[in-house]
């Protein structure tokens, strides 16, 4: 892929698609292209949460390590989705691991940078929060559906 300007690149991600150009330009200042090889960690539980990843290609597994079961993947996210929420709130620590399942292409947005710009311009902040909340809502609903254990009514005998 030829080097597109970052504001164009981020405008192609569903999270930020359709934002006004000035906001895109503003956010592009916090962004950089970061690829991950399959099996490498994007973020690690307990580390400082300073980055927000927009997934462009490949899949990322959200994991937790259980001494009994080893690595447990609680959810996978794919192209068009995002990884990492903990940069939004103190104490800015990751709660889970996130690992590239395939070769993963991301746009990494600097958390502190995003926070500063959102605080400075409430319009930017509100727009960002609306879009993030929507993704969070989808994740929350998906999690609730999984809590139903819909396919778990078969009895083992």
């Amino acid at each position: 892929m030829r080097d597109l300007p970052m504001d164009v690149l981020i405008s192609r991600h569903p999270l930020l698609a359709g934002l006004p150009n000035d906001i895109l330009l503003l956010l592009a200042g916090c962004a950089r292209n970061v690829p991950f090889h399959a099996g490498t960690l994007l973020l690690s539980e307990g580390d400082t949460a300073d980055t927000f990843y927009l997934i462009r290609r490949g899949r990322v597994g959200i994991e937790v390590h259980d001494p009994r079961r080893g690595r447990v993947v609680v959810e996978t996210v794919g192209p068009g989705s995002v990884v990492g929420w903990s940069w939004l709130f103190p104490p800015y620590r990751w709660h889970f691991d996130a690992r590239a399942i395939d070769e993963v292409g991301t746009i990494a947005l600097d958390g502190a940078c995003l926070r500063t710009k959102a605080e400075a311009d409430p319009v930017v902040g509100y727009e960002l929060m609306k879009r993030l909340s929507n993704v969070l809502l989808e994740r929350l609903q998906a999690t609730r559906v999984r809590l139903l254990d819909l396919y778990g009514d078969g009895k083992v005998s």
Binding site: V73, V74, G78, G80
Partner: peptide, 23 residues
């Protein structure tokens, strides 16, 4: 294929089936 729960040996997706629709 997506599953509700998996160990690390599973290389496929984890999540609800609706999450596969968007992509």
């Amino acid at each position: 294929v997506t599953v509700d729960r998996a160990d690390a040996s599973w290389r496929g997706s984890v999540g609800v089936v609706t999450s596969l629709i968007s992509s």
